[in-house]
Structures are given as C-alpha cells and as structure tokens.
C-alpha cells in the first residue's frame, strides 16, 4: 500500500502541564475524506492545531508527504500544503471579504484555486466581496473561511466544526460543496460533533475520547452502537 499523505504518529500534545492528546495516530490518504468525531473537549481541535503547526507535539511526530512537520511553524506548514479552517471561522474583522480571501493566498502553492474559482463555488461571496467581513452572516463567514483556506491551494484541508452554530439548511448547503473541493484532488479532515453529517461525508472515521482514539474504521462499517459507545465512553 502506498504511503499515506498525512501520517500522524502517536502524538502527545499539551497545554502547559495539561495533556490534551495521548498517543493519537491517524492517517489520511490522497483524495480521502476522514472524519474526526468526539464530544466537546475530546481533543479534536487540539489534533487539528497540532497538524497545522499552531501547536507542536511533545511526543510522536506528524509526517506529511513523508516529511516530518511536527516542529514546523504554522506559516511553514501552509507552504507544505495544509490549510486549516479554524473553529469559529475567525475571519479577520479589519479586512473585507475579498481581502480575507486574498490573504489566504498570501503564500500560494500552484493549483486550481483562484479568487474566481472561490467565487464560483460560493457566489454570494462575489456579491459581498468589498464589504467588511463582519457584515457576513454566519453561513457566509463559514464559506469565506473555507475559501480563504482554499486560496493557498492546499493538498489537505482541515475543517474544524464547520456546522457550529449554523442552521441545518445552511450546513447542508456548505456540505454540498465539499465534493467539488475533493474533486480537485484535495484530501479532507472533517471535525464534527454532528455524527450523522460526518458519517455521510467521509470514508474513514476516527472517534476521539478524552484525548485518545477510542474507535476507528470505515464509515459504512461502523455500527451506531459502537460509535455511541466510543463517543460517550459508555
């Protein structure tokens, strides 16, 4: 079997003395969509932040395309081709919608995503391109945050709870665009608390519980019981 695009090897992550991840391993193959689920505080965001270089693992390592990036700074990890859509979207409030997208392309790799392609994917953003990003609705902000991440032409896109705080109809609308993104050859890690949404969108599922992988497997093979056992720890 070919080596995976992303190979997270038994990482331990800490906030000061507090250990948030315990020997977490995870693999993502090229073109694959992987879901990471788990209750609030399970360590999902910590895992994504560690992959993206905002945190560095104290044990284990992160390999991307065979290269160790565990100690690389976040701004360097982007250049390797990993982009994070952070939890809570976190658009830059001082920037317009278009500036938010442009800054996502500040260190662009060659690839298919351009301003125009983002506007094709989310036409509403084109209409609002010159408005301050704070004027967008929650769903539109999420689209802008995804677009901003895509502008760097990543090989791997990390999405942290894109459904958070959004109406179901908006969530469905955004999830409906994900296949278009995958069709461009990207791999995805989707972090969700919404299990159904995650299972629908992904091939592989990992369930985190209190900083440890409690369950993993192909989305279609996992039973509802095994998932809820791993999720709630009962």
């Amino acid at each position: 079997m070919a080596s995976p695009l992303l190979d997270v090897r038994a990482i331990d992550a800490f906030y000061g003395d507090f250990q948030a991840l315990f020997g977490v391993s995870l693999r993502v193959n090229a073109g694959e969509v992987v879901a990471v689920i788990g209750a609030n505080g399970a360590g999902k965001s910590t895992l994504l932040k560690t992959i993206a270089g905002l945190m560095h693992p104290r044990g284990g390592d992160v390999l991307f395309g065979g290269e160790a990036i565990g100690n690389a700074a976040a701004f360097d990890v982007v250049r390797h081709g990993i982009a994070l859509v952070p939890e809570g979207r976190r658009l830059f409030p001082s920037l317009t919608v278009e500036e938010n997208l442009l800054i996502g392309g500040q260190s662009r790799r060659p690839g298919p995503w351009t301003l125009q392609r983002i506007y094709d994917l989310f036409p509403i953003l084109a209409e609002r391109r010159h408005l301050p990003s704070t004027s967008l609705s929650g769903g539109q902000q999420q689209m802008a945050a995804i677009g901003r991440a895509l502008m760097s032409n990543p090989r791997l896109l990390l999405c942290d709870e894109i459904s958070l705080g959004l109406a179901p109809i908006i969530v469905r609308e955004i999830y409906a665009r994900l296949p278009k993104i995958v069709a461009e050859g990207l791999s995805l890690i989707i972090v969700e608390q919404d299990i159904a949404q995650a299972l629908k969108a992904s091939a592989q599922v990992y369930c985190l519980q209190e900083g440890r992988i409690a369950l993993q497997g192909a989305a279609r093979e996992l039973t509802r019981e095994s998932i809820s056992a791993a999720y709630f720890g009962v």
Partner: peptide, 17 residues
C-alpha cells in the same frame, strides 16, 4: 493587509502563511 490581519489575530495570520 498582512499588518491588519496580524493585528486582528496572530494565530490565524500564521495559518495564512
């Protein structure tokens, strides 16, 4: 743009490269 973005949110600015 980089100045304003960094002023807004350092961590996310790093994510932008």
């Amino acid at each position: 743009r980089a100045f304003r973005a960094t002023s807004d949110d350092q961590a996310v600015a790093q994510l932008m490269g």
